[in-house]
Amino acid sequence: MMKIDEKLALQKTATKVRMGVIEGVFNAKSGHPGGSLSSADILTYLYFKQMNIDPENPKAANRDRLVLSKGHAAPVLYSVLANRGYFDVEMLKTLRHVDSILQGHPDMKKIPGVDMSSGSLGQGISAAVGMALSAKHFGDDYKVYTILGDGEIEEGQVWEAAMFASHKKLNNLTVIVDNNNLQIDGSIDEVNSPYPIDEKFKAFGFEVAVINGNDLDEIDAAMQKVGTYEKPYAIIANTVKGKGVSFMENQVGWHGSAPNEEQYKAAMAELESALAAL
């Protein structure tokens, strides 16, 4: 278990990260707040506690890598990177602007701290597998993380990647599925159910943990196991889409739309008071 002050610090950071998501999407007048908010706790934990990284040296050869396979959650990745010190938090307000480095989907060529360009679903996990294979082959000991959407795993390529990762025993790879249960056209079990997700990854030869992905203690417990298995590791993170902004929670309409001024103020006020209460 994490110490209380450590958990509190992460909770505060995750709340600031959520504020950065709202700030970015509001100023962009477009983007994907729902799946960004659902994965905010996981990404905060990874970049503030788990990963071996250095914002001063974003290209360090032996750094841990993260591929945001669900690239449309770019606002939360950018907010985490900015809050971690890769670039100015103020820059989040330029999300998706024509002269900004903060592209609609992650761009490794433009944005410090982004390890792989992503956005076309299903491809990021394969790239993460390639990174893990490279580490094994060349004798490097860094770890690779990738975050997938639950809708994303409807892509066949995800399972090609899972099969290969297991076959090659890539135990330096951790796959996290942000299981918020909503995709653009509805709930994932209505559109094209990928359930049971845990059983599928087990069948593909993964060690599997199922956690509450919005609970930092459960995230912490699951992450303690990284690197301890012979097999690749899948964490199925049950989350709430839109988590932290009450009117966005579990609402599929907030998958890919931006708040208006009134909604923006309400969301920021709610997050401000949540931060103050911590």
């Binding site: 591929v67 394969s126 390639g130 490279s134 060349f138």
Partner: peptide, 14 residues
């Protein structure tokens, strides 16, 4: 498709 994206990941590690 997986092979091509794996290749990209390897190249991304330098």
């Amino acid at each position: 498709q997986n092979m091509v994206s794996i290749a990209a990941g390897i190249a991304a590690t330098g």
